[in-house]
């Protein structure tokens, strides 16, 4: 009798445990490896997700953030390579994961990482100083055509998203700018407000403070549609009032930077599924919505095939720019 009872109990226990076993969950602290220094864009991204996951009890395991921003983020991706198969490490990055290997000789390839999700798209805008003579993007481009190589575009880092976009503008229009790399978007914003450079291609939240103060103004945004409605930022103008670049006569349909989450390669499919699910839930939390509004990013939850497609397209189009500029690292 007792034997049967124990057996029964054991059986129920196994049955109860069965669904839990199929679904993997982290049983130790999860490392959030951030491909930027503390305070950088990817850092804010990771820390927002960390707080959204904790506050809404989506992931029970504790989470710790590690900044590995060296070499434009390469440090974080090399770390992922060294930890192949580790299900407790998530890597937070942009499109630098798959673009960096093209421009620099590095000891990792994109295949060393497994994409989990993209959660947001950061927009790029062309900004000029408030009292600059250029009223529209075509003014700026025409001026650059008239006096090639004299109009200074500032951007953050070298051969990174900003310089790529400037190169793309040059390749599309035939204009010729002079590009000066600085350390980060904030610094480029101030250089523009101080009049040391003529234009920059900052993300919205890198320049919004100077725009509010009326020191700089946007010319156009590189997105297929205008940005979301918002309160007026500067004078009457809000984000939605900025024309898209193709509307304004610059034939670049879209140029956006995804905020992405990755795992090291060779983890079980359940692990990927678990984090995909967690990230999809994050996108619905108020913390996340708040983050999108405050940083003026566009929400876009991409997982699975959709994500793979996006990466493929983004990679192909950017590499074309790299090749035209001769940036691809010689193998």
């Amino acid at each position: 009798m007792t034997k049967i009872k124990t057996a029964l109990l054991a059986a129920t226990a196994v049955m109860a445990a069965a669904p839990a076993m199929a679904e993997w969950a982290p049983n130790r602290p999860v490392e959030f490896v951030v491909a930027s220094g503390a305070g950088g864009g990817s850092d804010n991204f990771a820390r927002t997700i960390q707080s959204a996951l904790t506050r809404n009890d989506i992931v029970d395991a504790p989470m710790v953030v590690l900044n590995k921003g060296g070499g434009s983020g390469a440090e974080a991706f090399l770390y992922a390579r060294q930890n192949a198969g580790d299900p407790n490490k998530l890597i937070f990055a942009t499109n630098n994961v798959y673009l960096l290997p093209y421009v620099a000789k590095l000891a990792y390839t994109t295949e060393d990482l497994q994409p989990v999700a993209a959660l947001a798209l950061d927009e790029f805008l062309v900004w000029v100083k408030a009292d600059s003579p250029y009223e529209t993007i075509t003014d700026l481009i025409d001026a650059a055509k008239e006096a090639p190589g004299t109009i200074v575009f500032g951007g953050s880092q070298s051969k990174d998203t900003d310089e790529t976009l400037v190169a793309l503008i040059e390749q599309t229009t035939g204009a010729d700018f002079r590009y000066v790399p600085f350390n980060g978007g904030g610094e480029v914003g101030v250089q523009l407000a101080g009049g040391h450079i003529a234009a920059n291609v900052n993300n919205p939240n890198e320049n919004v403070g100077q725009w509010q103060a009326g020191a700089v103004r946007p010319l156009c945004v590189f997105a297929p549609q205008r940005m979301a409605e918002s309160e007026p930022i500067s004078g009457e103008m809000g984000w939605h009032d900025i024309p898209t670049c193709s509307e304004a006569g610059l034939d670049i349909e879209s140029y956006q930077m995804p905020r992405t989450v990755w795992l090291p390669k060779d983890t079980d499919p359940e692990v990927v599924a678990y984090y995909q699910d967690a990230m999809t839930k994050v996108a619905e939390t108020p913390e996340w919505q708040d983050y999108l509004t405050k940083t003026s990013q566009t929400g876009a939850v991409l997982v699975g095939d959709e994500l793979a497609d996006f990466i493929q397209k983004n990679e192909d189009s950017t590499v074309k720019v790299f090749q035209a500029e001769g940036w691809t690292a010689a193998e």
Binding site: G37, A38, G39, G40, D43, N44, R47, T48, G186, N205, V208, G209, Q210, Q212, A213, A215, D290, Y291, T293, K294, T295
Partner: peptide, 19 residues
């Protein structure tokens, strides 16, 4: 200061002359 600025942005404050 760089880290604090990251915090500022998360709290929804924009550093800039208007702050």
């Amino acid at each position: 200061a760089a880290v604090m600025m990251g915090g500022l942005m998360i709290w929804g404050l924009t550093p800039g002359p208007m702050l």
